[in-house]
Design a binder for these strands. Structure first.
Lengths: 224, 224
DNA sequence: CAACGTTCGTGATAGCCTCTAACTAAATCT
DNA sequence: AGATTTAGTTAGAGGCTATCACGAACGTTG
């Protein structure tokens, strides 16, 4: 994560403490949620006094921003390697790429639900992510567009397709046709819809298996 | 909301103060999010000292729970009247009910995004809603099932349908066939997926019109 | 090696928060 | 009118974020 190879001992020590702080932060977020994250509590857990943490993070926001950045990076890495494996294994099996990405996202999210919700959950109204984070999120979008390009479009072009064709700046310089832009967006929203309701516990008392609903949603998305 | 007709003056005064507190709370939530809700700040806004509020709400959690309850009630009322209008206007126009509900949900959510996110956004890990709130949420589910029943199933039965047929307790005593249970769940997850990403601001920098994506998603949901 | 500047961690402190407790004043009930 | 319930106050405990001044450890450099 932080290259501890080439640096002064002081910088290596500093990087290690920062990493240790983040570990405690993740642990705390996993159990109490991001809104209850306490720098003070982390400091106590690490055996030092409260204000000491401010040597490593200027404030609570900066720590949370770095957690968000790491979460995005982790998701992007996961999806990148999933896409690479899919491209290697089967030559061009339309939709297998998207299915692989879908399951990779769900596995990643279930591994630490609060980490997913830190990215895609309720945002704090004032917060604006720095540019390098939005860059990672557009890397993720590119992966989705690549996978969506492999699956052939099945629908006649919708009014949305024309709209997207004109406003395709968010796709960067990706050469996907309008139908693929649409397909990637729809994939994103549908996966997020079923997954976020599961993570938020809205299926908890209902008795059915969320994995089956996810699979059905994915199947419908790919074959319909 | 609270029946101020039949009660002692003291009870009416109390109910009015509680309502006033909630109004300030909603205002605060709309601008700073639910996690930053401060009883102290509300008290100051109302011109009284901090601890005075604890005469009306035992603690912060109780206030937030009541806000969640009111939000659910408001959404349920909105959808109920939308469903009633749809049933009255056009006799049985398959899918018009679902489309009406979808737009009603979106309009309701856009009117106060934080109110939607209070219900369907990131939950506090420890929190468990009281029974009367889950009762309202199952009323909403019943409205969805009613509307979904009107639209004929277009798909062959999926493996999920069998699963849902066996575990239909969450549908209460609703006589919907398995395909309709599936349809209602899919409607919920898809509407929530596109809507929650919009409300969370994930489409903000992308340039396209979220309303068109919502409409396309709804159209695909109904016609496919 | 010794002096120096940098960095780390500390306690003290301000200001915010939730929430409790003791007390006063007002309204209601008998 | 007197007794009781209730509303609101201040004081304060304990938590939090964050700043500041200070001493102690560290690395570098003459």
């Amino acid at each position: 994560m932080a290259d501890t190879g080439t640096a002064t001992p002081r910088e290596r020590y500093r990087a290690q403490i920062r990493a240790e702080i983040k570990e405690h932060a993740w642990q705390q977020i996993a159990t109490t949620g991001a809104s209850a994250l306490s720098l003070n509590a982390i400091a106590k857990q690490m055996g030092m006094s409260g204000p000491a943490l401010y040597r490593y993070y200027a404030n609570r926001d900066e720590l949370i921003t770095e957690l968000i950045r790491d979460a995005y990076r982790s998701l992007a890495d996961t999806l990148r390697s999933t896409a690479a494996e899919a491209a290697e294994g089967s030559g061009e099996e339309g939709g297998a790429g998207l299915a692989g990405l879908a399951h990779a996202v769900r596995d990643w999210a279930l591994r630490d639900p609060q980490r997913y919700l830190l990215i895609y959950g309720t945002p704090v109204p004032g917060y604006h992510a720095p540019d390098d984070i939005t860059a990672i999120s557009s890397q993720i979008m590119t992966l989705l567009l690549d996978a969506a390009s492999a699956a052939p479009p099945r629908h006649p072009e919708s009014p949305l397709d024309h709209h997207l064709a004109a406003r395709r700046a968010w796709a960067g310089d990706h050469p996907a046709p309008p139908a693929v832009l649409h397909r990637a967006l729809s994939f994103w929203t549908r996966i997020h819809g079923v997954l976020s309701l599961e993570l938020a516990g809205h299926f908890a008392g209902m008795g059915f298996d969320p994995a089956l609903l996810f699979a059905a949603e994915l199947d419908d998305l790919l074959t319909c």
